[in-house]
Write a protein that binds this DNA or RNA. Structure first.
Length: 593
RNA sequence: GGGGACGUAGUUCAGUUGGUUAGAACGCCGGCCUGUCACGUCGGAGGUCGCGGGUUCGAGCCCCGUCGUCCCCGCCA
């Protein structure tokens, strides 16, 4: 870096932000602070674009009018931090810049303070410059200056504020819960925090504040929320970080259906804050419908459903007992090449499916059936319509479901493959849907036992109470997921508030009474001290913001995210620690890398 | 844990069947320039071709390993 004499900030104070000045401010004196976005040195006159998170203002240094300050401006370079004072002047008609909000004016610099210099940034502070994410993450503080990131981070703040406002308006209280808590054996892997004071023991960082918020209901804080960090030590994805933020909500005395009335306005306000207009009422689909129409418990409603047509093909080679035959329909895919058909078949095969793509042959062999299929699906002339069926041995505890999931994956594969043609996967379109009536339990093939599909505190559907012991596979839970464009935003349930019911569910999950007490004793005990009926949900705030911002990854809406291997490239976490620190904790590293 | 893509200047990329001194654009540095706004113009600097090994007369290019980033499956009550 050049040797530059730096000025002190002292009592200097901004009069405006860099996106604020307009023609009506002409004639007044302004003092701005910010970063040197660009310098254009024409010799006798130097133009600076001064930038802060609000916008850009042009500053002019004229050698003939103010040689001393002009000389100082020659020392400037990109990303220097400066303060500028001068008169706001109207630009001549031919020099107005329509590309920036302040383009009608400029500041004739009377005085410049150079507050700090800057090394040349590793990449330009602009959008539309592709930079490898690795570099962006290492210099995240620079990346966050770029307009797109600023827009996302600012949107995130605005959405969070709108959510808080909407919740306060509905009488909610924001209450904090501990980060250093007890490890619970179910669910994701815990991040552990060793205790120095109790050697050999560990706190766990919460996977969610689930139990604490239920305890708050027991305590009578009947409308609770929290925008809170949660931690899960599992592998990452584009929409998954090891620490992520939940909007956590719990409500007492929640009557049937009330949760939707409470959540929907909050979602609406959140979308409004992001500048997105959505319908106030969100559609419903049952888990079973979602599986049979979309092959997914998080259906993307922007693309048409597939249709199960095994009934039409009963008795033919295509239909197999207890397994679906899916008519997959993708609009506007047009005529496919041989190569494309092979790719589609291969994609189906990878997922265990046989794909019947030859429509001519299908029409020839099954003319009546295909007529009925077209009746159901109603494809246009240039739409893609093919059949898919499970190819091999039946698999899983629920083979039909396994097959439906594969069909759903194939549907998404095709929808993405031809997204350019049908244009239905438009991030501008927001299709929310409630998925309800989830099964209570899922079969764990490895451990050969039933697991809670949502979590073990979820109420069973009133009609299915008796099935808890007799037919767990067909027990429906009082749970609900909120899905947007094929992304699960969050889930919730009506909780069990009765000690006896909770015991039955634990029994169905194969826990002995002792085991249940050991794992969740404090919650079970709390249920014995006047627990009100309650329920709630948790929404993944990062995902909400991601979709509202039209981004493909939650990393684009988190200021300091982690990589796919859960590292922070900027501060180089996680890291080794001094031996002494480990000794104090009574920890020895067995296999250091 | 498995599969796939990528890694060359500060950044984004090109680099022919393996062949002389690894190029371009932007950025950076220096000169000139009083109305630019992606300023212009003249000149210049800048490379551990991710890292290690191998094949070869010769490797950015081929082979093996390894590290890193991204995507997907498993996993995420």
């Amino acid at each position: 870096m050049a040797e530059v004499k730096l000025d002190f900030l002292g009592s200097l104070q901004r009069t405006h932000r860099c996106g604020e000045l307009r023609a009506s401010d002409a004639g007044s004196t302004a003092l701005l602070m910010g970063w040197v976005h660009r310098r254009r040195d024409l010799g006798g006159v130097i133009f600076i674009h001064l930038r802060d998170r609000d916008g850009i203002t042009q500053i002019v240094f004229d050698e003939s009018r103010n040689p001393e300050q002009h000389k100082r401006a020659q020392e400037l370079s990109g990303e220097y931090v400066i303060a500028i004072e001068g008169e706001v002047k109207l630009r001549g008609a031919d020099t107005v810049n329509p590309n920036i909000a302040t383009g009608e004016v400029e500041i004739a610099a009377a005085k410049i303070w150079i507050l700090n210099e800057s090394r040349t940034p590793p990449f330009p502070v602009e959008d539309n410059v592709d930079v490898k994410e690795e570099v962006r993450l290492k210099y995240r503080y620079v990346d966050l200056r770029r307009p797109r990131m600023q827009r996302n981070i600012i949107m995130r703040s605005k959405v969070a504020f709108a959510i808080r406002r909407a919740l306060y308006a509905q009488g909610f209280l924001e209450i904090e819960t501990p980060f250093m808590t007890r490890s619970t054996p179910e669910g994701a892997r815990d991040y552990l925090v060793p205790s120095r004071i109790q050697p050999g023991t560990f706190y766990a960082l919460p996977q969610s504040p689930q139990i604490f918020k239920q305890l708050l209901m027991v305590s009578g804080y009947d409308r609770y929320f929290q925008i809170v960090r949660c931690f899960r030590d599992e592998d990452l994805r584009a929409d998954r970080q090891p620490e992520f933020t939940q909007l956590d909500i719990e409500i007492s005395f929640l009557r049937d259906g009330q949760i939707y009335e409470i959540i929907e306005p909050i979602i609406w306000e959140a979308c409004q804050a992001a500048g997105r207009t959505v319908e106030k009422k969100i559609a419903f689909i049952t888990f079973e419908q979602a599986m049979r129409q979309y092959g997914s418990d998080k259906p993307d409603l922007r693309i048409p459903p597939f249709h199960c047509v095994e009934d039409l093909f009963a008795g033919t080679d295509l239909a197999r007992e207890g397994l679906p035959l899916a008519a997959i329909h993708i609009p506007k895919a047009g005529t496919l090449t041989r190569k494309e058909r092979d790719e589609i078949k291969a994609a189906g095969q990878e997922r265990g499916l046989r794909v019947y793509d030859d429509s001519k042959r299908l029409e020839r062999d099954f003319p009546e059936q295909m007529a009925r299929v077209r009746e159901r699906v109603k494809p246009a002339d240039d739409d893609l319509l093919m059949l898919a069926a499970w190819a091999g041995e039946k698999r899983g505890a629920l083979p039909e479901q396994t097959a439906l999931l594969a069909c759903g994956q194939l549907r998404l594969f095709l929808a993405q493959k031809y997204a350019d043609r049908h244009k239905l996967l438009d991030p501008e379109v927001l299709k929310f849907v409630w998925v309800v009536d989830f099964p209570m339990f899922e079969w764990d093939e490895e451990e050969k036992r039933w697991n809670a599909a949502h979590h073990p505190f979820t109420s069973v559907h009133d009609d299915d109470l008796e099935k808890l012991t007799t037919d767990p596979a067909h027990c429906r839970a009082k749970s609900y997921d909120l899905v947007l464009n094929g992304v699960e935003l969050g889930s919730g349930s009506i909780r069990i508030h009765r000690r006896d019911v909770q015991s039955k569910v634990f029994a169905a999950l194969g826990f002995s009474e002792e085991e249940a007490k050991r794992r969740f004793g404090f919650l079970l005990e709390a249920l014995e001290y006047g627990a009100p009926p309650h329920g709630g949900m948790a929404l993944g705030l990062d995902r909400v913001i991601m979709l509202l911002a039209g981004e493909q990854s939650v990393r684009e809406v988190i200021a300091f995210p982690k990589t796919a291997k859960a590292t922070d490239l900027m501060c180089e976490a996680p890291s080794q620690v001094p031996e002494q620190q480990l000794r104090q904790l009574g920890i020895r590293v067995v296999n250091p890398q």
